[in-house]
Simulated scan of single mutants.
Amino acid sequence: MNLVTTLNALPPWQAAALVLVASLGAAVVTEVVLVRVARHAVARTETELDELVLESLRLPLVLTFALVGVFALTRIPGVVAAVPVSAEALEFYFGRPALTTVVLLWAWALNGVVNRTVGYLQESGARYDFAPVISNVWTLVVLVGALAITLSIWEIDVSPLLAGAGIAGIAVGFAAKDTVANFFGGIALYFDDTYRVGDYVELDSGEAGTVVKVGVRSTTLQTRDEVLVTVPNSVLNAAKVINQSAPGRRRRIRVPIGVAYGTDLDEFESLVLDVAADESLVLDSPRPRMRFRSFGDSALRYELLCWVASPTRNAKATHRLNRGIYDGLREAGIEIPFPQRVVTMRDDVRSIEGNGSMAPTAPVEGATSSDETMPGGRSEGRFGDD
């Protein structure tokens, strides 16, 4: 003998009272006993995530026990027969609304659990910066699922709706193809882990900045000029993105230096490395190093290689190093060669005409020049006939 048969054997008022008392009692016990015990248990844990889940599920759990009694009354034949309304009316005004309320409560709760969990994880570390994309997808899934179950409860035939939705979907798809592309582009960027909030990225189109917001449709960058640039996710998904903050935030900078031929290289290298060691923006590890790259036309070409803590410090560190190196080389008397040109002009043969004006007595041929490289990067140019 099942529970419905047992309740049906009782007088209608006793069966109704028993069902209502049982459902309300279960709701009270859940709120007063089970929820309190669960709160004490989760309070002992280190994470706050379990507390967020408990608070999101508490209300729908308690109301579900209370509404189950209302729905159960519409399923007991003896109670239905004793009510002075038809079974269809009882189902329409009590059974289906109660069940619909339970479905909507749990849809709201499940969506809240995921959204609050995403917010918690997003605040806990940069690893979950793309989590809002998943949150939006989950919200869409819960909304569609709750709508489908609600229509099923009310026995609404969705076939005409599906046919109309198919036609409308095609029209919306053409009208919102960019939005859809941005949406799926954001999902692709999430799974590829291309960048995170706080990363400094450069695009092949020339834009560069720090990622300050990652949304479903677009990503927002803040440039060094504190200008916000919004880039659609579909563009980012198809573009070449250089993440200067991955896999680590530190970045190596290269400072080219030219020194004159004949310079004491040991003294020069030691001086430059001392300048780099004294610069506060330069990291101690890896240690700065000097590299002799090539023999130039008028200089020995070197590069100073050193590391900074963040790609946003590249420009400032390069500026300070250039100034420090210049001052150090000047004080040490080490020459930094630079291009120079010495021009020698030859006097043309001229005569003074009777009216006192100067005029050439012979045609002046086209001027020619020849450059000769001189020590220290100087070149000599001669104009005129050779």
Rank of each mutant, 00 (worst) to 15 (best):
M1G: 13
M1E: 09
V4P: 00
V4N: 03
N8P: 08
L20S: 01
V21E: 04
A22P: 02
A22K: 00
A22H: 00
S23E: 06
L24Y: 14
V29F: 15
T30R: 13
R36T: 12
R39F: 04
V42S: 05
V42L: 08
T45K: 11
T45I: 15
L54A: 14
L63P: 02
F65D: 09
G69W: 05
F71M: 05
P84Y: 10
A87Q: 14
E88M: 12
A98L: 07
T100N: 08
V103G: 03
L105F: 13
L105W: 14
W106N: 12
A107L: 04
L110S: 01
A131Y: 13
P132I: 06
P132V: 05
V133C: 03
N136C: 07
V137R: 00
L143K: 11
T150W: 07
I153V: 09
D157E: 05
V158E: 01
S159D: 07
S159Q: 09
A163F: 10
G166T: 12
I170H: 04
A171P: 03
V172E: 02
V172H: 00
K177S: 13
A188Y: 10
L189S: 01
F191C: 07
Y195K: 06
R196W: 10
V201P: 03
L203Y: 09
G209W: 04
T220K: 08
L221N: 02
T223I: 13
V229K: 11
V229T: 11
T230M: 10
P232H: 14
V235P: 07
A238K: 09
A239H: 08
S245E: 02
R252G: 00
I257L: 11
T263Y: 06
S270K: 09
S270Y: 03
L271R: 08
S280P: 15
L281C: 06
R287L: 08
P288F: 06
R291S: 15
R291A: 15
F295N: 08
Y302W: 14
E303D: 13
E303Q: 03
P311M: 14
R320A: 02
R323Q: 09
V343Q: 04
M345Q: 08
V349C: 01
P363L: 08
V364R: 10
G366Q: 05
A367I: 06
G376N: 04
E380G: 05
E380N: 12
E380F: 06
